[in-house]
């Protein structure tokens, strides 16, 4: 048995317990199901001095969904979400994305908060201590170069691979955030800052990929004004179970007669952030035809930038993302 690094575990029962522990231990980490964090702790990738278990916090367990709005607490498990009848009926995109995560046992453990804040991934990062040290580590931990792009000038391209984020992005979701000093609500899209640009115009990359401040916790994710949208999620993966996405795509659209009046497409598994494609509104107004699908392909090619952070080549991930998006749009338009 290999001991984990020394840490203190706080078993929180209320949000107040969490916030007090956050205030007392600014370097603490939150732990939901632990299916991401505990793996990284076992591999010596992160060594937080205090873990705050948020799975039993009463205020974080809500699941509500109807035609026009949804609300999901951060500690709801992925299986609870995937099996929720109202979620499956009104927001198939969310239920399908939750069901597509890992395998059934991981889904009994994994939470919505942990999935939204899932650490970014890279073949040079998700490795044992021994493997990483043999490779002199990399920028995302203690090293000084990126092995994916050695000339990256300090930028990390580790990939955001959570399945729920794109599903919630196409519904225009917002996240509620709490900290010892108060609460705030931001668009879910603003939670993710992994733009990974070489110019300093925008902050954030695969290492610094969330806009959360120290001490903050995501308490819930909500969406409103979703009436009429039809939606779906699909992902390409190497095996059918226990597998992160090669690329995952969420689509929500609104059709009026023959006209496509609203179209939203989001992609995961490609960039250091989930990408809500910009420019889809310009494809709306008429019926779905080849021009629209080609326009969608152009947006995907322009905005999806997979680097060699997985065993699957980047250009393949970009292509399948575009193909999946076109398939889902075609299917939902015909429904």
């Amino acid at each position: 048995m290999e001991a984990l690094h020394d840490f203190e575990l706080v078993r929180a029962a209320t949000l107040d317990d969490v916030l007090k522990a956050r205030a007392a231990h600014p370097q603490s980490a939150l732990v939901g199901g632990g299916t991401d964090l505990m793996v990284n702790i076992r591999r010596g990738i992160v060594t937080p001095p205090v873990l705050i278990d948020v799975t039993q916090v009463g205020e974080l367990q809500a699941v509500n969904a109807d035609e026009g709005a949804l609300e999901i607490g951060a500690s709801v498990t992925l299986n609870t979400l995937a099996q929720d009848d109202a979620m499956r009926r009104h927001y198939p995109v969310v239920a399908e994305a939750a069901h597509a995560i890992a395998g059934p046992t991981q889904r009994n453990m994994g939470t919505v908060g942990g999935n939204l804040c899932l650490d970014t991934r890279c073949i040079f990062y998700n490795q044992s201590e021994w493997w990483r040290s043999a490779n002199n580590h990399c920028l995302k931990t203690t090293g000084d170069t990126c092995h994916v792009a050695p000339k990256s000038h300090g930028v990390c391209f580790a990939t955001y691979s959570g399945d729920l984020a794109p599903a919630l992005l196409v519904l225009g979701a917002e996240v509620d955030i709490a900290s010892p000093s108060g609460t705030r609500t931001i668009p879910l899209n603003d939670l993710y800052i992994g733009y990974a640009r070489h110019d300093d115009a925008v902050e954030g990359d695969g290492k610094n990929f969330l806009s959360l401040e120290a001490g903050e916790i995501v308490t819930a994710v909500r969406a409103a004004n979703t009436s009429g949208l039809t939606s779906a999620y699909d992902k390409i993966r190497i095996r059918r179970s226990i597998e992160y996405p090669v690329a995952g795509v969420a689509v929500a659209l609104l059709r009026d007669g023959d006209a496509l009046v609203d179209l939203r497409v989001a992609v995961t598994g490609t960039n250091p952030r989930p990408v809500l494609l910009e420019g889809t509104a310009e494809l709306c107004g008429g019926p779905l035809n080849d021009d629209v699908l080609q326009g969608l392909d152009a947006l995907a090619r322009d905005q999806i930038m997979p680097m060699k952070t997985t065993f699957t080549p980047g250009h393949y991930r970009r292509r399948v993302a575009s193909v999946l998006a076109q398939r889902l749009v075609t299917r939902l338009y015909a429904e």
Partner: peptide, 18 residues
């Protein structure tokens, strides 16, 4: 895999104290 309150969970990612 073990059962916790009849639900299958991974004991390798679960802290005993939890």
């Amino acid at each position: 895999t073990v059962l916790i309150d009849d639900v299958p969970l991974l004991s390798c990612l679960t802290l005993a104290a939890s």
